[in-house]
Write a protein that binds this DNA or RNA. Sequence first.
DNA 1: TATTGTTATACTCTATAACTATA
DNA 2: TATAGTTATAGAGTATAACAATA
Lengths: 147, 147
Amino acid sequence: MTYANDMLADTALASDLRVTVMRLARRLRNQRADTSLSLGQIAALGTLDRHGPLTPGELAAHERVQPPSMTRILATLEAAGLVTRRAHDTDGRQVWLEVSATGKAMLRDDRRRRDAWLAQRMRDLPAEDLEVLRQAAAVLDKLAASG
Amino acid sequence: MTYANDMLADTALASDLRVTVMRLARRLRNQRADTSLSLGQIAALGTLDRHGPLTPGELAAHERVQPPSMTRILATLEAAGLVTRRAHDTDGRQVWLEVSATGKAMLRDDRRRRDAWLAQRMRDLPAEDLEVLRQAAAVLDKLAASG
DNA sequence: TATTGTTATACTCTATAACTATA
DNA sequence: TATAGTTATAGAGTATAACAATA
C-alpha cells in the first residue's frame, strides 16, 4: 500500500481508526468497577474532582445535562456520601460542591481497575508495539482536542 | 507500590491511553449523522448488515440486549423501512431479518459522515503523525480483540 | 414440555415546565 | 424582574414477567 499524503488513503485510514477506537472504547467502558453508580454519576463525580469546587449549574453545563438532571445525580452522590455541599461566599442562591474523601477513594479505585485491565493486555505486546502506543497517545489526543 | 520500573511505566501509559481513547471515542460518537435513529437502533442495523441474515434472538444476543428490547428496536427499524423480515426455512417460530436497500444506504451515509469528520482533522496533522496513526491502528486493534 | 418471539408493565435516566429563594 | 436550584411530570430506552405460537 503506497499511502503518501493521498486523500483517499487518509479517508481509508480514518475509517479504520474510527472503527478501532470505538471498539477499544467499548471494551474499556465495560471494564468499569462494579459499583452501584451509573455512568453519568461516575462522570459527574470525575468532573467535579478534576475541576475543583463547582456549583450545580456549572457542573450541569460541564456534563451537558440540564440542571434538574444534575439535581437528581447529586442527590444520589450525596446520599452515598461521595459529594458534599457548602455555602457560597457571596450568593445565597448558589452552592459549592466538592468530592468527599470517600468519593476520591472511589474514583481512584475505579481508575485503578480500568488501568489494570488495559495494562494487563499491554503486557502481551512486543516492545515495538508499546513504542507505537506511546507516540500514538499524543497524536490521538491532538485529534480529540481539535476542531 | 512494589512494581518494577517498566511495569510502572506501562501502567502510566495505559492510564494515558485509556483517557485519550475514551475522549476521542466521545467525539466520534457525537459526530453521528443527524438522523432520527437512536444509537442503539444504528448499532443493531450495523450488526445486521455485517453479520448477514439473523433472527431477532440472535441479533439481541449480539447487541447484548434482551429479546423484548430488540422487538422494540426492530419495530422502529421496520417502520422506517430499513429492515425487512422473511420466513425461516424450517422453523415456523423464527424469522430472518435483513437490511433493506434503504437501510444499507443509510448506513453508508452514516459511516461516510463519521469518516469525513476524522479525515478532515487528520489533514491538519504532519506526515509523521499520520505514520504513527497507521501503525497504531493495528496495535489498538490487537488490544481491543485481546482477552 | 421447551423454545422463539411478542405484549404488558415497571424502572432508570433525562428532559421541559412550574415553583421557591435569593439578587 | 432575573437567576440558581429544586420539585413535578413526561418521554425515551431497557428490563423482567406473562403470554401465544411452534417444535
